[in-house]
Amino acid sequence: MIIDIEKFITQERSYWSELEKSLEGLETDFGAQLSLSEIKRFHYLYGRTASDLARLTTFSTEPNLRRYLESLVARAYGQLHESRGRQVRFKPLQWFFTDFPQTFRRHWIAFVMSTALLLGGSLFGGLSMRFDPEAKSTLMPFDHLMQTPAERVASEQKPQHADRLAGRKSSFSSFLITNNTRVSILTLALGVTCGIGTAILLFSNGVMLGAVCVDYIVGGQSVFLAGWLLPHGSIEIPSILIAGQGGFILAHALIGYGSSLSMTSRLRAILPDLTNLIFGVAVLLIWAGIIEAFFSQYHEPVIPYWVKITFGSIQLLLLTLFLMRSGVAPTSSGAKS
């Protein structure tokens, strides 16, 4: 049986055009809201076009027309059957102070894993440094860390080094922001290797951190170390840990241990959370980059160590409070009763 294409097109063209116009409107305006009658009409047009496609497939094959109808049905299908939360207009403050910390708390186990790996690496790096100081160049492959802690502190506290970043603070800050963000993205993205890559990256960062800490503590420069690392490290290190948390969330969705959902469903469920985490990390790292370039690199006598240590400690406390408490819905005793 052969379809009468001319008659078919003449009869149905107006419905296809109407559906196409509705789709263009919905796809262009992210916040578009349809009334009940518009939704009914849209559903009718979708049903009619889907039916046309089915008839065309059954009786005849005109490839161009079929592709055209397939395209319309595919687009309308996506609009009608999407059950995930409708995208609303982005509110930056609400996102940062509510969505981001809530997402962090929802996946606290992944954060604990991330922290444990970094601490494990730090312990390994610290012990290696303590018992095998010869391994310093391997554990800390940075030229400026090759001198002894005492030499470095003496060098940093010289008056002529007071403003050694003069004229390049902004460049240095932008370099730190981009480099740390790149590392964070990679830490999260490596979750796609079932978390193995994320774990390796966190552990290796921990090794370097632990080695540096032990080197300075053994060298009797604990105060300098705290004054140097705390102001930016109190934000930078938790940021990397949150990126690692994202990596483990992704890995868990891939492995699916303890979940009865399909892998596709698991991945779909965590994508908004991963997006929240990585954008939150980016915001924190911008702040950390500015602090590191404009504050952390100045030591006594320019900035007393107690000021830097106090600043870093308060910052860490505020960050902890922010992640633990921000966005928690206030409990109303009236509502309870």
């Binding site: 595919a74 609009q79 059957h81 995930r84 796609v192 908004p272 991963l274 997006t275």
Partner: peptide, 15 residues
Amino acid sequence: GLKLQFSQIVMRNLI
């Protein structure tokens, strides 16, 4: 075949 979400776009580009 569903609607492409912003989070999907972000993740495919970051990975």
